[in-house]
Design a protein around this nucleic acid. Structure first.
Lengths: 213, 213
DNA sequence: GATTATACGTGAAAAGATTCACAAAAACTA
DNA sequence: TAGTTTTTGTGAATCTTTTCACGTATAATC
């Protein structure tokens, strides 16, 4: 299957919305309703569905339960995915504490750090010494990892992850990591995202004042 | 100017790399070096530069100091941008504690929350009651805000921000916000990002086993 | 049961982003 | 200083994603 990354991301969002819609008793909906809720267009919604073979009923739209079942099948709700986080700093701990993961099949099973002051083997999830990363991942067959360490340590951590069998990484370190291409890397750079907001605010302001003249 | 969002984001990343390169004594470099460091191509680098009128020297590449000066000019390093964060939960506090912002022109001037237990007016940045958001933003002419509240509160917070004069928002709430189109919104959905990693790991695995048969 | 209205599904067109290909400028060489 | 090499800068081509346009199925109405 082609990796239609943006469509997949939207499918997850549709799913999220459908779960909420279900919880308030909605049984049927149209692509327009989804589009409206997601800030996109009904065509986009239907195109995404079309790409992945999700279908509804002409004239009557979609049955929420059916659609949700199809999405869960497609997005793999049933396969629980265990995740390790490396770096127990601000971001690592924020992710750890986020309760929303579990119900969607994501389980944070351990954090790792190089600072002995933060070790806590009895917590859930435990915070373990970085030296145990390889063995832990390897033994427990973990496939997804989060890198939340300073940039100078990130490549090193990734190399261990790869050796240990990790197949997909969410990377918060602001650096381009080297990896074999069968590893899936998702870079998330929060500073960059915030900087870009500041930039566009300024850019739009400049634009506006220029046009006023 | 056209909003070439992806190019702008890359420009910020080039800048980040240049700062590091400068700190280890590099004086000149080629588009190839930048590309290599960023995991992209030299053509992409030059195209980005071309789009924004950044130029170097044929055959001799780029003088690091010149390039950095041009980037700072373009990306507005000099204009300090003050930011408020609404929501003093895990993500809000993680951002607050991140020290990397300040040196790049971003200053977190206050957090806001609805929970009296987290108020702390004397801290830096202070954590203030949500009711003060409008007045604070309005009085201090803040233009950038971060929404790090649960999804059901996000629209309400945004509405206040808009009234108070905010022009750009980084939104961590997993919901499509309604806003006039002169407001710049950057949605960041961490759960979605992690879910998608898990999805692609599974998808690639399925693919691989299928091809092995 | 025939007619009509509505919303889906999807090729085709458009828009947006990346890569190609090469002319031209600058530095180095002899 | 003439010739060669290297790297930039950018139109054109390609690839990707989104939007358009419309045929078709289905529910509702008469």
């Amino acid at each position: 299957m082609k990796l239609a990354k943006l469509s997949v991301m939207r499918l997850f969002q549709y799913k999220e919305f459908l779960i909420r819609a279900k919880s308030i008793g909605i049984k049927n909906l149209f692509s327009d309703d989804l589009a409206e809720a997601m800030g996109t267009t009904s065509t986009q919604v239907r195109k995404d569905f079309s790409l992945f073979g999700l279908s509804g009923n002409k004239r009557a739209g979609y049955k929420l339960d059916d659609l949700l079942a199809q999405l869960n099948e497609l997005l793999g709700k049933n396969e629980k995915q265990r995740v390790v986080i490396v770096g127990a700093g601000n971001i690592g701990r924020a992710l750890m504490k986020y309760e929303g993961f579990y119900k969607d099949g994501l389980e944070i099973v351990a954090l790792f750090d190089s600072d002995p002051n933060v070790y806590n083997e009895t917590a859930t999830p435990p915070v373990l010494p970085l030296e145990h990363l390889y063995e832990f991942v390897n033994r427990n067959k973990i496939e997804v990892g989060v890198i939340a360490v300073p940039y100078h340590a990130a490549q090193q951590v990734l190399d261990i992850m790869i050796l240990a069998g990790i197949k997909g990484v969410m990377n918060f370190a602001p650096i381009a990591l080297r990896a074999p291409k069968d590893l899936y890397i998702n870079d998330v750079n929060l500073k960059l995202e915030l900087e870009s907001v500041a930039y566009f605010v300024n850019a739009l302001k400049r634009d506006r004042t220029k046009n006023d003249v």
